[in-house]
């Protein structure tokens, strides 16, 4: 059964025509998203700027109770 499953994927990937181009696009896209965009442009704001959940909660509460401060 495992052998059949393996060959399903193995032969399937080997015989792809359009699929080869599509997989290239998928990998390039995922690389751009995770290795460039996520790392350099989309840090998790709270995870990056605060060490603990208590600090994060405090920051959000500050924004909720004094929204005019710390928003710039």
């Amino acid at each position: 059964m495992f052998k059949n499953a393996f060959y399903l994927y193995y032969d399937g990937f080997r015989s792809m025509v359009v699929g080869r181009t599509l997989w290239k696009i998928i990998f390039i896209k995922l690389f751009i998203m995770f290795a460039i965009l996520k790392v350099f442009f989309f840090p998790d704001f709270l995870a990056t700027n605060f060490a603990t959940d208590a600090e994060r909660a405090d920051h959000v509460l500050n924004n909720l109770t004094r929204p005019s401060s710390g928003n710039h």
Partner: peptide, 18 residues
Amino acid sequence: GIILEFEFGTNWSNYSWM
């Protein structure tokens, strides 16, 4: 759609937390 989740964490962090 994953990019939407990136945006939640970066641009909409108060919302994401809440």
